[in-house]
Design a protein around this nucleic acid. Structure first.
Length: 384
RNA sequence: GGCCUCGUGGCGGAAUGGCUACGCAGAGGACUGCAAAUCCUUGUAUGGGGGUUCGAUUCCCUCCGAGGCCUCCA
């Protein structure tokens, strides 16, 4: 049974690691498993019982919330308010309805571990107190998580750790991220709008396109982590275009210093949206690659944020586009030559006819003049 | 039912007790034979109603709307 559980979590963890890596996330230093920390959990539970913060009843070990005067501080709830609106009958063995399980006995066919209270399993929450203590210490700096976990999970985690170790805080800062929505609706399997990171990267299931990991990452950085993210095709299109323009200004410039304003924005509660605004300003300052200092700063800042590493802008923009199905240079070049000849003699109707023909093939032309010689040039790309 | 969080222009999205960033779209202009791309300029917003204040989008109350949590498990 314990092995079967491990096999399931292994698969999920591997997918998670692959996805976050594709988005440019660094690999965590430590990725502890609850099942590898049973002894540590038992030790904390024993301490809590000894400190009178926990008690044994009906074979369970329960945490006594009333033993902690400021229980509920994180979620801004009081025990009284919780009780007043409770919809579910209180279990008789609990001294207070808010008391929660630290250890629960297992039947023979349930997974379990030996403990001073018999073969059983830990309650939810205690694994986090045990593992954070083991790897980060009795108190630490930042604790993250989804905002749906604020109550009861994080509240109970705090109660366990503080009462076991005797500190006023567990973590100095709590960062809770908002929920993900898709095109204005919550993402759920029943609504059929469920999309995974690997699907965004590897399939055309969302917006009939594959999306480069940099674009996906940038679309997430666009809003504050605390707010809900509405995941839309429009946002990806917009960010893909922005990244194309930014990298066009940055490519070829050695990264120098990261933008001070970006660092300042990130230092203010990880204000990534403000950082993106700074980059838009930096992009304007780059002035079409004429401001070398701004371009070098762009180069450094994009790399710092993990949304670029020197790739050709078009490789990011055209990521996932099936080049083989489109026209080739051999198809297009003769038509461009003909059109340049027509333009040279001001035969505009023929020139436009050829351009329309190419548009029908899905080709977008871009005319330019060589700044040095004044010679007319034309480049093309597949219209997207 | 109780509690928590949130409500900013056409759209996305920051910030703030006193000129409301930034982007997209829109409008005007430059460039171009005309386009495309690029660049410049520019209009538009703090859900409704009260209150505190010299002044409220920001603080308080209330209503409306959205999301979350409230048994076990994660």
């Amino acid at each position: 049974m314990n092995e079967a559980i491990r096999a399931v979590t292994e698969t999920t963890a591997d997918q998670f690691m692959a996805d976050t890596k594709a988005l440019g996330c660094l690999e965590p230093d430590v990725q502890p498993r609850a099942t590898d920390n049973i002894a540590e959990m038992i030790a904390i539970i024993q301490t809590l019982i000894a400190n009178k913060h926990a008690y044994v009843a009906d074979g369970e070990v329960l945490f006594s919330v009333t033993s902690m005067p400021d229980y509920g501080r994180l979620s801004n709830r009081t025990l009284d308010e919780q009780q007043a609106g409770a919809r579910v009958a209180v279990e008789a063995h609990k001294r207070n309805p808010g008391d929660f399980v630290l250890w629960k006995l297992s039947s023979a066919d349930e997974p379990g571990w030996d403990s001073p209270w018999g073969r059983g399993r830990p309650g939810w929450h205690i694994e986090c107190s045990a593992m954070s203590n083991r790897y980060l210490g009795e108190t630490f700096d930042i604790h993250g998580g989804g905002l749906d976990l604020i109550f009861p999970h994080h509240e109970n985690e705090i109660a366990q750790s503080r009462c076991a170790f005797g500190h006023d805080v567990m973590a100095n800062v709590w960062m809770h991220n908002g929920f993900l929505q898709v095109e204005g609706e919550k993402m759920s399997k029943s609504l059929g709008n469920f999309i995974t990171i690997s699907e965004l990267l590897e399939t055309k299931n969302f917006g009939s396109n594959k999306w480069h990991g940099y674009v996906v990452r940038l679309a997430m950085l666009r809003s504050n982590y605390r707010q809900p993210i509405d995941w839309t095709v429009d946002a990806l299109v917009e960010m893909r275009k922005a990244l194309f323009n930014w990298t066009t200004n940055a490519i070829g410039f050695e990264p120098t210093k990261v933008s001070e304003d970006v660092l300042e924005a990130l230092s203010d509660d990880l204000n990534t949206a403000a950082a993106v605004a700074v980059i838009h300003n930096l992009n304007r300052a780059a002035a079409n690659r004429t401001n070398a200092e701004a371009c070098a700063e762009m180069s450094a800042t994009l790399r710092f944020l993990g949304i670029w590493n020197g790739e050709r802008p078009d490789d990011i923009f055209s990521y996932g586009y099936d080049v083989q199905s489109g026209p080739s240079d051999a198809d297009v070049a003769p038509l461009i030559t003909d059109r340049l000849a027509a333009r040279a003699v001001k035969n505009w109707s023929e020139s436009d006819r050829i351009r329309d023909e190419l548009v029908a093939m899905g080709i977008q032309l871009k005319d330019a003049k060589d700044p040095a010689t004044g010679e007319l040039t034309t480049t093309w790309e597949v219209k997207r």
